[in-house]
Deep mutational scan, measured.
Amino acid sequence: LTDEELVTMSVRELNQHLRGLSKEEIIQLKQRRRTLKNRGY
């Protein structure tokens, strides 16, 4: 997933992508998404 996709994707879509990932990967992705959102994309 690109940063842009992460930010513009709805939470529902995101959760579908996260299905099948490990807990660590999910946590990393969610942190990255929060960081991007805070940057004001």
Rank of each mutant, 00 (worst) to 15 (best):
R32L: 04
K30H: 09
R19F: 07
N15P: 00
S22F: 02
E13P: 00
R39F: 09
L29N: 01
E4M: 13
I26W: 05
Y41I: 10
E25W: 04
R12N: 09
V11C: 15
K23F: 09
V7I: 12
L18Q: 02
Q16W: 10
K30G: 03
K37Q: 11
G20A: 05
R19I: 12
K37E: 06
R33M: 09
I27T: 11
R39D: 09
G40T: 07
R33W: 15
E25H: 07
Y41F: 13
L36H: 03
V11K: 15
V11W: 15
L21A: 07
L29H: 04
R34D: 10
D3V: 02
Q28R: 14
K23Y: 09
I27F: 12
L1F: 08
S22D: 06
Q31D: 10
V7M: 14
Y41W: 11
G20F: 08
K30F: 15
H17C: 07
L1T: 02
Q28A: 14
T2G: 04
E24Q: 12
S22M: 05
L1V: 06
K30D: 03
L29A: 06
R32Y: 04
K23V: 09
Q28K: 13
R34V: 07
R33Q: 07
E5F: 05
R32I: 03
R34F: 05
G40S: 07
E13D: 08
R32Q: 03
G40A: 11
E13W: 03
L18A: 04
L29M: 07
T35V: 14
T8A: 13
R33L: 14
R12Y: 10
E13V: 06
E13A: 08
I26Y: 05
H17S: 05
S10W: 00
D3Y: 02
E24W: 11
E25I: 10
E24H: 11
R12G: 07
D3A: 02
E13T: 05
R19H: 08
E5A: 09
R39G: 13
E13L: 06
H17Y: 15
E25A: 09
L14A: 00
L36K: 02
V7D: 03
G20V: 04
K37R: 11
V11G: 07
E4P: 03
V11H: 12
E4Y: 15
V11Q: 10
L18Y: 09
E4L: 14
S22T: 12
R34K: 13
R19T: 07
L1R: 01
S10F: 01
L36N: 02
T35Y: 15
N38C: 15
Q16M: 13
L21M: 10
S10M: 02
Q16Y: 11
L14T: 00
H17A: 13
E13M: 06
Q16R: 14
L21N: 02
R12L: 09
L36P: 01
V7E: 06
Q16A: 13
L36I: 04
L21G: 01
E24L: 10
Q16H: 10
Y41N: 13
G20Q: 05
Q28M: 13
V11T: 10
I27R: 12
K37D: 03
R12K: 13
H17Q: 05
T2W: 02
T8H: 12
V7R: 08
E5Q: 15
I27L: 11
T8R: 15
N38F: 06
Q16S: 09
E4Q: 10
R12I: 07
Y41G: 11
G20C: 07
L18I: 10
Q28L: 13
S10N: 06
G20L: 07
E5P: 00
L1K: 02
T2S: 11
K23A: 09
E24I: 11
L29R: 01
L21D: 00
M9D: 01
Q28I: 13
L29Y: 06
N38P: 04
L21Q: 04
S22V: 04
L6T: 00
V11N: 11
V7P: 01
G40L: 15
L29G: 00
I26H: 04
E24Y: 09
S10R: 03
Q31Y: 07
R12E: 12
T8V: 08
L21P: 00
K30S: 04
T35W: 15
E5S: 05
S22Y: 02
G40W: 13
H17E: 03
V7N: 04
R32N: 01
R34E: 13
N15S: 09
R33Y: 15
L6A: 00
T35G: 07
I27G: 07
E25R: 05
L18T: 06
I27W: 11
Q31W: 07
T35I: 14
R12F: 11
E13S: 05
E25T: 09
N15F: 12
S10T: 14
H17F: 15
T8E: 08
E24P: 08
G40F: 13
R12P: 07
Y41P: 11
E13G: 03
E13R: 06
K30Y: 14
R39E: 13
R39K: 15
I26F: 04
L1M: 06
L6P: 00
L14G: 00
V7Q: 06
E25C: 09
H17T: 05
E25S: 07
L14R: 00
Q28P: 02
L6R: 00
E4W: 15
G20R: 08
T35M: 15
T8K: 14
N15C: 14
Q31R: 11
T8W: 06
H17M: 10
T35R: 11
T2E: 03
G20H: 08
R39Y: 10
I27Y: 11
T8S: 14
Q28S: 11
Q16T: 09
K23G: 06
K23N: 07
Y41D: 13
G20W: 08
K23R: 11
L29E: 02
E5L: 08
E5V: 07
S10I: 02
H17W: 12
G40D: 12
L14H: 00
R34H: 10
K30Q: 08
R19G: 06
L14V: 03
